[in-house]
Simulated assay, not measured.
Amino acid sequence: MLINMAPGPDSLLVVRTSATHGRRGGLAAALGILTGCVGWGLATAVGLTALLTASRLAYDTLRVCGAAYLAFLGATALWRSRKPSGPEPGGRSTAPAGRSAAFRTGVGTNLLNPKAGVFYMSLIPQFVPQGAQMFSATLLFTAIDVIELAAWYWLLSRAASALSERVQRPAFRRRLEQITGVAFFGFAANLLTDRA
């Protein structure tokens, strides 16, 4: 649970989406992240994540794609910070992000992060009891991890969505977009320089 609560691009995405698009948007992003986690868990159960440690090319390809995606999210946030973002007539925000877009972004930030795959591959097998069937035990531990993450993202989303009224102020929204844009660039740079 402590590892799940560590700050990272997934948590940042939930906070930002919840603050700018309300709790439903944040929960949609969280659902996308959780879907990615299930994907990593399934890949670990069938042995696919072993490719990330066995093949430097596979790891580096995923790492560069993930960094490019995070840089894209950062650039998009910084671009939005330059535009007026006050509410439209009827109180809706001009910033794009339907729930399906938030879900897709959540899936992307998780599945394009090779560290998530290495996490599942290196940590989960340590908890599998000797003599237990690896496939079913891996799925069980993946389910436990996803439940913990769901609880954490629910709390994050609830807390961040409380800011949504304040975020409607254009100056606050611009500052939030700038901070998250720079943070996504930082996560991208960290992923690019990672040699694990």
Rank of each mutant, 00 (worst) to 15 (best):
Thr76Arg: 14
Ala71Trp: 04
Phe72Arg: 04
Ala75Pro: 02
Gly98Tyr: 00
Gly74Phe: 05
Arg92Cys: 04
Arg99Ser: 15
Arg82Tyr: 03
Arg92Gln: 12
Ser93Phe: 00
Ala97Gly: 15
Thr109Glu: 05
Ala95Thr: 12
Gly108Tyr: 01
Pro89Val: 11
Phe72Ser: 05
Ser100Cys: 08
Ser85His: 08
Lys83Met: 14
Arg104Asp: 05
Gly98Asp: 14
Gly86Asn: 02
Arg99Leu: 13
Leu73Ala: 07
Asn113Glu: 09
Ala77Gly: 09
Ser93Leu: 06
Gly74Met: 00
Thr105Phe: 08
Ala97Glu: 15
Ser93Gln: 08
Arg80Asn: 13
Ala102Val: 01
Ala71Gly: 09
Pro84Ser: 10
Ser100Glu: 06
Glu88Pro: 01
Gly74Lys: 01
Ala101Asn: 08
Thr105Asn: 13
Thr109Asp: 11
Gly91Tyr: 12
Leu111Asp: 00
Arg99Tyr: 01
Asn110Phe: 08
Asn110His: 10
Arg104Asn: 02
Phe72Gln: 02
Asn110Glu: 09
Gly106Asp: 02
Ser81Glu: 10
Ser100Asp: 12
Pro89Phe: 07
Lys83Gln: 15
Pro89Thr: 08
Leu112Lys: 09
Pro89Glu: 14
Gly90Asp: 06
Lys83Asp: 14
Asn113Trp: 09
Ala102Glu: 03
Pro84Tyr: 13
Arg99Phe: 01
Glu88Asp: 14
Ala77Thr: 05
Gly86Pro: 02
Phe72Pro: 01
Gly86Phe: 02
Lys83Gly: 13
Leu111Asn: 02
Phe103Gln: 01
Ala102Thr: 04
Ala102Leu: 02
Asn113Ile: 00
Ala101Ser: 14
Ser81Tyr: 11
Leu112Gln: 11
Pro87Lys: 09
Gly98Gln: 05
Pro87Met: 11
Gly108Asp: 06
Thr76Phe: 14
Lys83Leu: 15
Ala71Phe: 06
Arg80Met: 14
Leu73Asn: 12
Ala97Arg: 04
Asn110Cys: 15
Ser85Leu: 04
Pro84Lys: 07
Glu88Ile: 04
Ala77Asn: 13
Ala101Gly: 10
Asn110Asp: 09
Ser100His: 07
Trp79Arg: 04
Ala97Trp: 00
Ser100Tyr: 08
Gly90Met: 04
Ala97Cys: 13
Arg80Lys: 12
Ser100Thr: 15
Gly91Ser: 15
Gly98Lys: 08
Asn110Trp: 05
Asn113Ala: 09
Val107His: 04
Asn113Arg: 09
Thr105Glu: 14
Lys83Tyr: 12
Ser93Arg: 09
Gly106Tyr: 14
Thr109Met: 03
Ser81Gly: 12
Arg99Gln: 12
Leu111Met: 10
Ala97Lys: 11
Arg82Ile: 02
Ser85Asp: 15
Gly86His: 09
Gly91Pro: 05
Lys83Ala: 15
Val107Leu: 10
Phe103Trp: 14
Gly106Arg: 03
Phe103Pro: 02
Ala97Met: 14
Arg104Gln: 09
Glu88Phe: 01
Gly90Thr: 03
Gly91Ala: 12
Lys83Phe: 11
Ala102Arg: 00
Asn113Ser: 10
Arg99Ile: 03
Leu112Trp: 04
Ser100Gln: 11
Pro89His: 05
Gly108Glu: 02
Leu111Lys: 06
